[in-house]
C-alpha cells in the first residue's frame, strides 16, 4: 500500500473543513474497511484520509422519535444490529445485518461508509430503500436530506458532491408495514449476493395498500421494481396468485447483469422466485422480531 496522510479531526465541523479541498483523492474514513480493501488493491491511492472515528460520539448514536428512527452515520453495523430500538422498530434491518459480511467487519464498518461505498452488492441499500429511508448529508455550512434511492447513482457511484458527508440515516417507523430481505448467494454462503431482494408491504386489513420492492446485486445499483409493485397495489393478502404475478412482473422488467455468480437469464429466474418468496416472507413475518 502506498503511503498517505491520516488525519483524525475531533469534530464534524473540523472534518467537513478538511474535506472541503480541491484534492480529489482525499477521502473520509468511517471504519475504513472498504477503503482499505480498495487501497490494497491499488484502485484507490489517496493522498490523505480523514478519519471520522474521533468526531463527536453523537454521530454514532441511534435514537427515535414518534415516527422515525435516526441512526448516526458513524454507528457501526454491529451497534445497529444489537440496538434495542432497531430490533423493535426495524427488525428487518437487524435480521439483514446478521448475514452481512462477518462479525469483525460489522464491529468496525459504519453505516455511512457502507452507503457511501455504493458497492452494488451491499445488503443495506435495498432494505433502506424498501423502508423509505433517507440520508442527511452535511457539507461545510449546509445540510440536505435525500432518499437513499437517490443517493446511489451507479456502480460504486453516489450523488454525493465533493466535500459532502452522510451524517445520519432517517428510517420511518414501519407501524403496519411488513418487510423482508432475502440475500441470495449462488456459491458459498459467505459469497457476495447474486441477488438481494427487499420488500416492504403496507397493509390495510386484508388489502395491500402499497408495496415497495428494491432489488440489488444483479444490477449496477439497487433498483425499485415498479411493475411488480403495481401488481400488488390493492391486492388481497390472501391471494397467493398475486405473489406469483408480482414475481413474474419483476422478472419481466428486470435487466440483470451477468457475472461469475450467474448469467443474466438465470438471475432473472432468481428474481422471479425470490421476489415471490420475499413477499411471502414479509406476510409471514408480519414485522416480527428477529
Amino acid at each position: 500500500m502506498r503511503p498517505f496522510e491520516l488525519l483524525e479531526p475531533s469534530s464534524l465541523r473540523e472534518a467537513l473543513g478538511l474535506l472541503d479541498t480541491a484534492d480529489e483523492t482525499v477521502r473520509p474514513a468511517g471504519g475504513g474497511t472498504a477503503l482499505m480493501l480498495m487501497m490494497k488493491a491499488g484502485v484507490l491511492e489517496p493522498s490523505r484520509l480523514i478519519s471520522l472515528r474521533r468526531i463527536e460520539p453523537a454521530w454514532a448514536e441511534i435514537s427515535q422519535s414518534a415516527d422515525a428512527v435516526e441512526i448516526g452515520a458513524l454507528a457501526t453495523l454491529s451497534a445497529i444490529e444489537h440496538s434495542g430500538i432497531v430490533r423493535s422498530e426495524l427488525p428487518v434491518i437487524a435480521r439483514t445485518l446478521r448475514t452481512l459480511a462477518n462479525v469483525r467487519v460489522r464491529n468496525v464498518a459504519t453505516l455511512g461508509g457502507n452507503l457511501a461505498h455504493a458497492d452494488p452488492h451491499m445488503d443495506l441499500p435495498p432494505v433502506l430503500i424498501a423502508l423509505g429511508a433517507s440520508v442527511i448529508i452535511a457539507s461545510r455550512g449546509a445540510e440536505r436530506e435525500l432518499p437513499v434511492a437517490e443517493l446511489i447513482s451507479g456502480y460504486y457511484e453516489t450523488t454525493l458532491a465533493s466535500g459532502e458527508l452522510i451524517v445520519r440515516v432517517r428510517v420511518p417507523k414501519q407501524f403496519a408495514r411488513f418487510s423482508a430481505y432475502r440475500k441470495i448467494t449462488t456459491r458459498s454462503a459467505d459469497d457476495w449476493p447474486a441477488l438481494g431482494v427487499a420488500v416492504a408491504l403496507d397493509r390495510e386489513g386484508p388489502v395491500l395498500r402499497e408495496a415497495r420492492i428494491a432489488v440489488s446485486a444483479a444490477f449496477d445499483r439497487p433498483l425499485r421494481l415498479a411493475a411488480a409493485e403495481a401488481v400488488l397495489r390493492g391486492a388481497s393478502i390472501d391471494d397467493e396468485a398475486v405473489l406469483i404475478h408480482a414475481g413474474d412482473a419483476a422478472a419481466d422488467e428486470a435487466r440483470p447483469i451477468a457475472d461469475e455468480r450467474g448469467s443474466a437469464a438465470y438471475k432473472r429466474e432468481l428474481i422471479r422466485v425470490h421476489v415471490r418468496r420475499a413477499l411471502r416472507d414479509a406476510l409471514d413475518a408480519q414485522g416480527g422480531t428477529p
Partner: peptide, 22 residues
C-alpha cells in the same frame, strides 16, 4: 480482505480484522 479471520485481534474488547485496521 477480512474474510478468513486469521488476523483476528480484539480492539477495546471487540473482534476486528487486523489486516483491515490501520
Amino acid at each position: 480482505q477480512g474474510l478468513c479471520g486469521c488476523c483476528t485481534v480484539l480492539v477495546d474488547g471487540l473482534a476486528v480484522s487486523g489486516c483491515l485496521y490501520f
